[in-house]
Design a protein around this nucleic acid. Structure first.
Lengths: 152, 152
DNA sequence: CACAATTAAGTTGTGCACAACTAAGTTGGA
DNA sequence: TCCAACTTAGTTGTGCACAACTTAATTGTG
């Protein structure tokens, strides 16, 4: 019989998570100002730099974002000249997102960012990997629980 | 001479953080539906249940939120009948936020939430505390770095 | 074939986050 | 005393997140 967890703000892991996530995002805001990207836009660019020319649906699955978030975001990336959208001819429902030359070129400018963020975090590579693994496990566990509680 | 960190999405701790934070928030969305609160609103209520009747400024300092976020959020809590705002007579700039009876009463309904979230995370109390400490350290380190990079 | 069910993307509306700004009150010197 | 500097809240505008919905195309089944 363990003590029930308290309603105290300081005790709650979730608040730590929320605060840490916002702290990291706000550092990205500074670092990304140079590239004229927001953090979610940067995530999309990362995904595209890894694999170019793929449907919105696939980007959404990788980043856990739905079309309600991605559609306007991609519209802004398109307006900035970084990506282009082409409707597939064999399935007119699907839209492929591809990098423009300028979008590909931006990768060079971004090359140094992971090191800056890594340094700001003040963790060695081992601690970084360990924490990443713990967070992945956490997210998976929480998502499974939510799915059971409220099947979407 | 360590390897420079890569631009691969999977490698990045920050994405894990972002994904985990969103996963937890989406579980809260389900759990809090019963109380008609969003997650940030719940955080404000937690802060007020701990210490009632204090200025917006102080709430902001505790939650790391500025008036641009808090003002409309508090307005919604007020509209829901959970808090009331009173301007201090000795310093008319300052607005104190206090719980209404209904706001105080809501605490009973929230009492079980930390255990639900704790269970969803699937961590024992020790792991929970350890992770919380790591996240706090991370946020502090990142904030210090950003502050140095771009003094606000 | 017909057509209901499904799928992909986009739209609308709400509520954070946050930058930049405004309004109003307070304080601390010269 | 006067008023410039500061402080507290609030406002405005932008961009996520996400639920709920729409539109249009495709698929599966009788």
């Amino acid at each position: 019989m363990t003590e029930p967890l308290s309603l105290r703000l300081d005790d709650q892991l979730c608040f730590g998570l929320y605060a840490a996530s916002r702290a990291v995002t706000s550092l990205y805001r500074v670092v990304l100002a140079d590239l004229d990207l927001t953090y979610p836009q940067y995530l999309v660019m990362l995904a595209l730099w890894e694999r170019d020319d793929r449907p919105v649906k696939e980007l959404g699955a990788e980043l856990n974002l739905d079309s309600g978030t991605l559609s306007p975001l991609l519209k802004r990336l398109q307006a900035a000249g970084l990506v282009c959208r082409t409707r597939r001819s064999d399935d007119e429902r699907s839209v492929r997102i591809g990098l423009t030359e300028s979008g590909k070129a931006l990768r060079e400018k971004a090359a140094g960012i992971p090191d800056v963020i890594g340094e700001a975090m003040g963790l060695d590579e081992a601690a970084l990997g360990r924490m990443r693994a713990e967070l992945d496990r956490l997210a998976e566990s929480v998502n499974a629980y939510r799915e059971a509680l409220s099947p979407s």
